[in-house]
Amino acid sequence: MPVTLDPDAALVFKAFQEAGRPAYETLTPAEAREYYRQARFVTNPEPPLLKSVAPLAIHAAKGIIPARIYTPMTLRQSNGLAPSLVFFHGGGWVIGDLDTHDVVCRKLADEGQLIVISVDYRRAPEYKFPAAVDDAIAATAWIADHAPELGIDAGRLCVGGDSAGGNLAAVVAIAARESKSPSIAGQVLVYPATDFAMTHPSHREPETSILLTHTVIRWFRDHYLNVAADADDWRASPARLETLAGLPPAYVLTAGADPLRDEGEEYARRLDQAGVAVTYRTFPGQFHGFFTMGKLLDQANVAARDMGAWLQALK
């Protein structure tokens, strides 16, 4: 479909082009990680003031999973316990970490008036599929089990993430449904990757090849998956699941100039058809990754406020 970038998004894309930004597929994973980490100083907005930000060690069968817990100045509480969002950062399962999404987590804690716990799951290619999935599921279960000591209401625990993190959040919600534990109150899926088939029209449209391209996605896929057959596993491609019924309420966001646009929209539609309460938001003039760029793109701040309002409205 025709895509016209918002004026500010077009300026940001032009600036990236003029800066000679290297394509991730031309870099090693270590180089790509450092490049992504450095970009945050240019794109991240000023963070809101929080009550506290602290490291957290999550104990899992595979070892300690590093995490970070964010408590806002204004916190919704009932009987001394607050709602929470377990957040999984984006980065194609290869790049991204607690620092690249630090400001996003601060904003979500502030806007949602809830505790946010950001999880630093193992990344590929050092740890291939399903290591990130295992860590995401284990971390969410551990947080639910330790909810009272973390000041969290286990009945108001949500999961969320952007891109690869949105994939992990969707998978955690499904895993919780399958095992009937823990209870997940909601899922926030920001331009989520949902199907490694990568055959939706938005993967082929030249207008969507902005920063995240189909070639870069293949680079991420090849680092993350072990063999082609992994793509058929719902833990890699949650859209492959036959039914999405019984999943928690979902907030799904897509961007118009994004190869993942169509699969995110289709996932939201399938959730709705399965009887899941869905709030779908699309930002037609933005590109993949805009959500972390609140210093340059005000639509990122609009999205954070909208997400926060949705989180506050959850029962």
Score class of each variant (00 low, 15 high):
179 S>F: 08
169 A>W: 00
124 A>S: 15
315 K>Y: 08
209 S>M: 14
193 A>G: 11
256 G>L: 11
310 W>C: 09
1 M>F: 15
283 F>P: 07
287 F>W: 10
257 A>H: 07
182 P>H: 03
136 A>G: 03
171 V>I: 10
299 Q>C: 14
109 A>M: 04
46 E>N: 14
14 K>V: 09
115 I>G: 03
195 D>P: 00
121 Y>R: 01
23 A>Q: 13
1 M>Y: 12
55 P>K: 01
87 F>S: 01
223 H>T: 08
266 E>V: 12
313 A>F: 10
134 D>S: 10
137 I>E: 08
162 D>I: 00
83 P>D: 06
222 D>G: 13
95 I>S: 08
215 T>K: 13
49 L>D: 13
24 Y>F: 15
225 L>N: 05
249 P>C: 05
268 A>R: 01
243 T>V: 07
129 F>K: 10
281 R>P: 06
182 P>M: 00
99 D>A: 13
203 H>F: 15
202 S>P: 06
188 V>Q: 07
2 P>L: 11
1 M>P: 15
204 R>K: 15
259 P>I: 07
231 A>S: 12
169 A>Y: 02
242 E>Y: 04
62 K>T: 13
231 A>Y: 00
89 H>T: 02
92 G>K: 07
294 G>Y: 05
270 R>W: 08
199 T>H: 11
71 T>Q: 03
72 P>W: 03
